[in-house]
Computed example of a mutant assay.
Amino acid sequence: MHRARLTRIRLNLAHPAVRRDLADYVGLHKTLMRLATHDPGCPHPRRDAGLLFRLETDHKIPLLFVQTKDEPELDGLPRGYGATDTIDLTPVLQHLDTSMRVRYRITANASVRTPAPHSAPASARRGPVIALDGPDALAWWHRRATRAGLTLETATLQPRPYRRPRGAGPGPHHRLTQFDGTALITDAHALAGALVHGIGRGLSYGAGLLSLAPA
């Protein structure tokens, strides 16, 4: 059975750890992993904990939405990091139904892996990953939404910054895009899986958390 908890954090901009994390998604990921429970020695702790997050800075006070499989360990955050509230998403996951109309939001890493030249060595046959924008990014989201059990009715996109430590230039595919709109649920089982596991690349760094609300 799918299960998830969603924690909203109203960030305290006066806190030095918050200011540091807002400038570095790698550091932010490490801070948020303190919320997560996972088996010691697990080779994939983020995936094991079901941790996904989305940062929204358009509000007067920046908001972090953090999803975990189990109840978050809020005491793991630095003291004074921000005000938190948590809701259980499990009932929502259990009552998804086809033909429901929803509003959605996701910040995603819209990217594709390009084919490598035939002359490339076997170790490089997969080719590089490149970021998509504009109509290509929208087409990517339509494909991924369909696989996730949604038929999109409307879709808008807005580029979002991918924050890296000072002096560490972003890679060619480290780019985030926020998609908003309305959709029809066509496969409730696939959608529940996408909500829990995330969509696309960059799940450790602020991408892939899909949020829904009644349309």
Rank of each mutant, 00 (worst) to 15 (best):
A108Y: 02
H197S: 13
H118L: 15
I130G: 11
I199Q: 09
V66Q: 04
R34E: 05
L191P: 13
L209V: 04
I9N: 00
A192T: 06
Y104N: 06
S123Q: 15
A14H: 06
L150Y: 02
T114F: 11
R34F: 04
G208H: 09
T107R: 01
A116D: 14
T68P: 03
A188S: 11
D48Y: 05
H173G: 14
T151D: 15
D21K: 01
V66W: 02
I185H: 09
S123V: 13
L157M: 13
T154N: 10
H142P: 01
G198D: 00
A14W: 00
P214Y: 06
T154M: 01
D133L: 12
Y25L: 11
I61T: 12
A124I: 05
Q158P: 03
K69A: 07
D21C: 02
T37V: 04
R166A: 11
V26P: 08
P40D: 08
P16L: 02
A4T: 03
Y162R: 10
H142Y: 07
K69W: 00
M100E: 15
R105M: 03
D75R: 09
R175Y: 13
D24R: 04
P72K: 12
R79T: 10
L96K: 10
A14M: 04
A139V: 05
C42P: 01
R175S: 15
T114L: 15
T90W: 05
L209N: 03
W141I: 07
K60R: 15
P72G: 04
L11F: 06
R164N: 10
L55C: 07
S204R: 02
A139N: 09
G167C: 12
A183H: 06
G82Q: 05
W140G: 15
G127D: 15
H15T: 02
H95R: 13
G27T: 12
L152F: 02
P72S: 04
S99Y: 08
T37L: 06
D39P: 08
L212P: 09
A207L: 07
G198K: 07
T177C: 08
R163T: 12
G169D: 12
E73A: 05
F65A: 01
S119P: 04
R54G: 00
G208V: 06
L55F: 05
G50K: 10
T177M: 11
R166L: 12
P128K: 14
D180M: 08
Y25T: 03
G50T: 07
W141V: 12
N12F: 05
D187W: 06
V102T: 03
A148P: 07
G208F: 07
R126Y: 14
R201I: 10
A23N: 12
H189R: 12
T57E: 14
P45K: 07
A131T: 12
G76F: 09
P121F: 14
D187L: 09
T90H: 01
I87L: 02
K30N: 09
H29L: 07
Y205F: 14
P16F: 02
P172G: 13
S99R: 13
I61E: 13
A4N: 04
K60M: 06
G193I: 01
T90G: 04
I130F: 15
L93Y: 10
A110H: 09
R125D: 14
A213F: 10
H29Y: 12
R144M: 10
A190H: 11
L176N: 11
P172W: 15
